[in-house]
Amino acid sequence: MKVRIRFSKEGPVRFVGHLDTMRCFQKAVRRAKLPAAFSGGYSPHMIMSFASPLGVGVESEGEYFDLELAEELPVEEIKERLDQVMPEGLHVTGVRCVPDGKKGNAMSLVAAADYRVRFRSGKEPEGVLSDLIDRFMAQKQIFITKTTKTGEHQVDIRPFIYEMRAEEDCIFYRLASASANYTRPDTVTDTFLAFVTGREPEPFSYRIRRLEIYADQGTEEAHVFRSLLESGEQV
């Protein structure tokens, strides 16, 4: 049985890095006495795959991983048992059955993600936020410099910003997040700030929160985004 688990990561635990968060869940699965399936060999490990790494310091309401179980269990029971053994700041908010096998795992499904960026007090850009965003988004192209193994490249990220709007004094984003077009919310925000202020943004001006991760059940031209929990087939 393969399940997709949705969790939130808030508060001090946001400073626990991606690999350590994975380790934390491996230990939690054991504490919850869930019948995890293991790989073979001398150092067997749980068959677990995370949808998308979350940066250190970033909070999230919608994180995902897939877990293979050796026995069938009701999803509600899995959710309850796992949530009870989580440390402060980590909560299991949903569990759903998904088809077995590697195909269609959480990571390969990721197409987009929502974020909320909150400015630290005194660090907000001057002006009406929604106007600034309109000006930014009115650009046909938004180039950033990406450094890869083969050198520096100019990449147009405008197509990857599916949505950007003001939510009170925060910015809401829906950004492309597949492996080929993964777009970082801090990159977009820094580019936005540089555009509206004409200066390099100050470090630590804002805090990022991921809200949800989506699969795309539509087409390249007409996206139909469904959260990874909704897009898991009910088995």
Binding site: G11, P12, F15, D20, G57, P87, E88, G89, F204
Partner: peptide, 25 residues
């Protein structure tokens, strides 16, 4: 949720910030 003694800009500047946050199981 507990308040941390160190501000974000410090925790994001140091190696292995999780050393300083407590809150373990």
């Amino acid at each position: 949720m507990r308040e941390l003694a160190l501000p974000d800009e410090i925790l994001l500047s140091v190696d292995k910030a999780a050393r300083y946050i407590g809150g373990e199981v």
